[in-house]
Simulated scan of single mutants.
Amino acid sequence: MADLVLVYGMRLLPADEIESVQAAPIALKNGNEAQVTMHILEGSRESIEAQLRHSLDAFFDFYPEL
């Protein structure tokens, strides 16, 4: 299997300031494009950290061959 790249981004903002979140585009070397689905986690620091750990574990469950 080829080496992999996990693409992600994070930013903390006040919850009441978010109007919308859209997919982030990725330009591939072969000329194609892909998109990264953006996710929102809300709550206290502890809650966000727990949700993030859970989401990361669930993400890799989609790829059991890794």
Results as ranks from 00 to 15, higher is better:
Ala2Asp: 10
Ala2Phe: 00
Ala2Ser: 05
Ala2Asn: 07
Ala2Thr: 05
Ala2His: 03
Leu4Trp: 00
Val5Asn: 04
Leu6Ser: 01
Val7Phe: 03
Met10Thr: 09
Arg11Tyr: 01
Arg11Ala: 04
Leu12Lys: 15
Leu13Ala: 05
Pro14Ser: 13
Pro14Phe: 08
Pro14Trp: 10
Pro14Glu: 15
Ala15Phe: 08
Asp16Gly: 06
Glu17His: 03
Ile18Glu: 05
Ile18Met: 05
Glu19Val: 12
Glu19Asn: 06
Ser20Pro: 00
Ser20Met: 06
Ser20Phe: 06
Val21Ile: 09
Gln22Arg: 13
Gln22His: 10
Gln22Gly: 03
Ala23Lys: 15
Ala24Ile: 11
Ala24Asp: 04
Pro25Ser: 14
Ile26Lys: 09
Ile26His: 15
Ile26Gly: 15
Ala27Glu: 14
Leu28Pro: 05
Lys29Asn: 05
Lys29Arg: 13
Lys29Cys: 00
Lys29Glu: 07
Lys29Leu: 12
Asn32Met: 08
Glu33Cys: 10
Glu33Tyr: 11
Glu33Asn: 11
Ala34Gln: 06
Gln35His: 13
Val36Gln: 14
Val36Gly: 01
Thr37His: 04
Met38Tyr: 06
Leu41His: 13
Leu41Gly: 01
Glu42Cys: 02
Gly43Ser: 10
Ser44Leu: 01
Ser44Gln: 01
Arg45Gln: 11
Glu46Thr: 02
Glu46Gly: 06
Ser47Ile: 04
Leu52His: 15
Arg53Asn: 11
His54Leu: 13
His54Asn: 04
Ser55Cys: 01
Leu56Glu: 06
Asp57Ile: 03
Asp57Pro: 02
Asp57Trp: 15
Asp57Leu: 13
Ala58Tyr: 10
Ala58Leu: 12
Ala58Val: 09
Phe59Thr: 05
Phe60Lys: 12
Asp61Gln: 14
Asp61Met: 12
Pro64Phe: 04
Pro64His: 06
Pro64Met: 11
Glu65Trp: 07
Glu65Asp: 10
Glu65Phe: 06
Glu65Pro: 00
Leu66Val: 12
Leu66Ser: 11
